[in-house]
């Protein structure tokens, strides 16, 4: 145990944290009934990806750090996506006065 601890924080440790965050995000995506919470779960997944990229960037690609640049782009896009998502949510809320995903869910096949 102490041997393992001594190697921390290794690349694998960061990747494990990212994997857990990603899976929690996936679970929230499937199970949330509130549309805002679904958006939050997606943000969690994107953060997991960013941890992955940053960890690879400093452990595998330390001199060129392309992963850091990639992460900056992911952050940018996440901001745009969140803004658009909330605008759509507002416009839907005006029509429907609910944010319950079950009521939007009329998939027939």
């Amino acid at each position: 145990m102490s041997d393992f601890l001594a190697t921390l924080p290794s690349l694998q440790a960061y990747l494990l944290v990212a994997a857990m965050l990603f899976c929690i995000g996936v679970w929230g995506l499937i199970n949330s009934r509130n549309a805002v919470r679904v958006l939050m779960s997606i943000e969690l997944m994107l953060n997991a990806v960013n941890i992955n990229l940053m960890a690879f960037s400093s452990f595998v690609d330390g001199d060129l750090i392309r992963g850091q640049v990639f992460a900056v782009f992911v952050i940018t896009v996440a901001a745009a996506e969140a803004a658009v998502g909330l605008a759509i949510l507002l416009s839907l809320y005006r029509n429907r006065v609910t944010v319950d995903m079950e009521q939007f869910n009329l998939l027939r096949w």
Binding site: E43, S57, Q68, V72, I75
Partner: peptide, 29 residues
């Protein structure tokens, strides 16, 4: 991980913008 720029970007954009936006949305709906 020695990435101060991305850490600041994360604070500014995620905490400062996205999280506040989400709070606004919660209050509006």
């Amino acid at each position: 991980l020695n990435a101060s720029f991305v850490a600041m970007a994360q604070i500014l954009v995620y905490v400062g913008a996205i999280n506040v936006l989400i709070l606004f949305a919660i209050m509006l709906v």
